[in-house]
Amino acid sequence: MLINKNMKLADVIHHDYTLVPVINRFGIHLGFGNFTIQEVCKEHNISTGFFVIILNAFHDPHYFPKERLQSIRLNILIEYLQKAHTDFLEDKIPEIAFLIEKMPGECLDDRKTYLLIRNFFLEYSTELKNHITKEEERVYPYVLKLEEAFLKGETDADIKKQIQDYPISAYEAEHENVEEKLFDLKNIIIKYLPKPKSDKLCFQILREIFSLEKELNEHARIEDLIIVPKVEAMENALKLKGFGNG
């Protein structure tokens, strides 16, 4: 189903409740009555167009209106991605960690197995956190500065240096495989747990892992298909323009 601005937000959530955390990222919370998406957006002072695109992109992985997404300013996209980061680190990860903590009583007799899984997940969380920190401290500020320079049409020495020494493609090249550990964890739980007492908790854990994975994929899609190409285009444009007389 394609979501549009004239639909009632409540109907959209009925159709796909996994959008709740996505709307939360925009500061919208449950209890919006019968208001349409457009009305809710107006009340919260957010761009309806962008909101609808993000809802659709999250709801249907095939929906990816490249042209429309590319017309959106990078600072708005990045603000959204940063909120998603906060969700990952403050909600998703602690939730899974909390469920894993419950394993010894509810599903595993063997304490050693529990500790192995707990430590493995801890390692994964640390990796994800480092990855996110790097993006927020190094990549995003650069992208924002670059967009500003691009819009103003003037570059300073800092930006020039970074375009030359460390363009976005360099970050792309060292893009870590954070998702691999998550994939392994799924298989460890699905295939290799020694005689779990009950599957109920494992099911909850798997549900959370799959949901985190879905969000991470969505996140990566925005980065790979929108941000990186857009930044590269800006880098090239600035190189052509400003570097000769700098």
Partner: peptide, 17 residues
């Protein structure tokens, strides 16, 4: 064969088994 790609994932598998 195992469906596990990372060294730490393999470690968990090896210790569990």
């Amino acid at each position: 064969k195992l469906g596990i790609k990372t060294v730490s994932g393999l470690t968990v598998y090896a210790l569990m088994n």
